[in-house]
Each structure stands twice: as structure tokens, then as C-alpha cells.
């Protein structure tokens, strides 16, 4: 049976009473501690009540307050409900456990988040840049990114 975000949150909070799960009402999503994301991801996918078997999108975010974020947009093909899960990590130590083995979609999405925002997904089997050249320095979608003057001898600024 399809659940709304409140029902899913209550269900998850019952499963993980020891974790600091938070329901964000402004943008309906569930905040999850970075260290637990892999366990929770498996639970979300395999639980009979949730069956969130499709990762629609995985995004990397620079929150501009010294933290980076990863946002997981999930959908249940079986039950038809959706869920947004967020993880927040400090900018100077942006490690998040990979969910690449939970949802195959996450493979390239995590590589993109690593490439552009610089979130490091621990346990990813092939974490390298996916869009930018391999010798690129820095993570361009971070707020503090500065465009290099030259790349391989080519002037970059206008």
C-alpha cells in the first residue's frame, strides 16, 4: 500500500529508534546520518512495506554553510510512493557510504556528484571523474570554486 512521507518516517523511526532521523516538513524529506545511509538504503529497498526499488536521482549539493549534501530521490515501482532522503556531511571531510550496490543507478550518479561537488563515496568500485577530464583540479559546483586561469595552455576566462 502506498505511504505518504509521514507514514514512511514513522515506520523508519520505529525501525531505527537509536538514529537521529528527522522529518523536514518544508521540503518533504528524511534526514539520515551519513554513516547509516547504506543500512537504511538496503532497508528502504527490501522492506515489504516500503519497496523503494528505484533510485530516480542522486544529487550532490553544496549547502553553502560548510556542509555538503547528498539527496536521494526514491520511487517504489510496486507501491507507487516516493521518498526523498538527505545526508549532510562536513565540507572538509565529505565521506558518504556508497549505495551503488543497492541501486545500480547510483554508480554514475555518485561519480557525477564526486566529479562536480567532491563528495567522496566510500566503497564505490570505480570512483573517478565522469564528465570533466581526469586531470581536472577542484570541484566546480562548490560555492568556493575559482575558475582556473589556464587549462592545458588554453585560457579559460572570457
Amino acid at each position: 500500500m502506498a505511504k505518504d512521507i509521514k507514514e514512511i518516517f514513522d515506520y523508519l523511526a520505529g525501525l531505527y529508534p537509536e538514529l537521529d532521523l528527522q522529518l523536514d516538513d518544508a521540503v518533504p524529506c528524511i534526514q539520515v546520518p551519513a554513516a547509516s545511509i547504506r543500512d537504511i538504503a538496503l532497508q528502504l529497498r527490501d522492506d515489504e512495506e516500503l519497496q523503494l526499488d528505484s533510485l530516480m536521482c542522486l544529487s550532490g549539493v553544496d549547502n553553502a554553510d560548510g556542509t555538503l549534501g547528498v539527496v536521494y530521490h526514491l520511487h517504489s515501482m510496486q507501491l507507487g510512493h516516493k521518498l526523498t532522503v538527505k545526508v549532510t556531511v562536513p565540507l572538509d571531510d565529505p565521506h558518504v557510504a556508497t549505495v551503488e550496490k543497492v541501486w545500480r543507478t547510483a554508480d554514475w550518479h555518485e561519480r557525477e556528484a564526486y566529479d562536480l561537488v567532491g563528495v567522496i563515496f566510500d566503497g564505490h568500485r570505480d570512483l573517478r571523474r565522469i564528465l570533466l577530464p581526469y586531470d581536472w583540479e577542484g570541484y566546480p559546483l562548490r560555492k568556493d570554486y575559482e575558475v582556473p586561469e589556464f587549462y592545458l595552455g588554453m585560457k579559460v576566462p572570457y
Binding site: 566546480p140 570554486y145 588554453m154 585560457k155 579559460v156 576566462p157 572570457y158
Partner: peptide
Amino acid sequence: NCGGPYWEHGYHVLKGVDRV
């Protein structure tokens, strides 16, 4: 020609192919 709409914020765009 010159980078087009990416002239200012396109960190990845060459601002004119006549540079290469």
C-alpha cells in the same frame, strides 16, 4: 565564436574556438 551564453559562468567552456 566567443563562448555564447557560457561566457561568464562556463568554467568548462572554451570562450571561442579561435583560441585553439
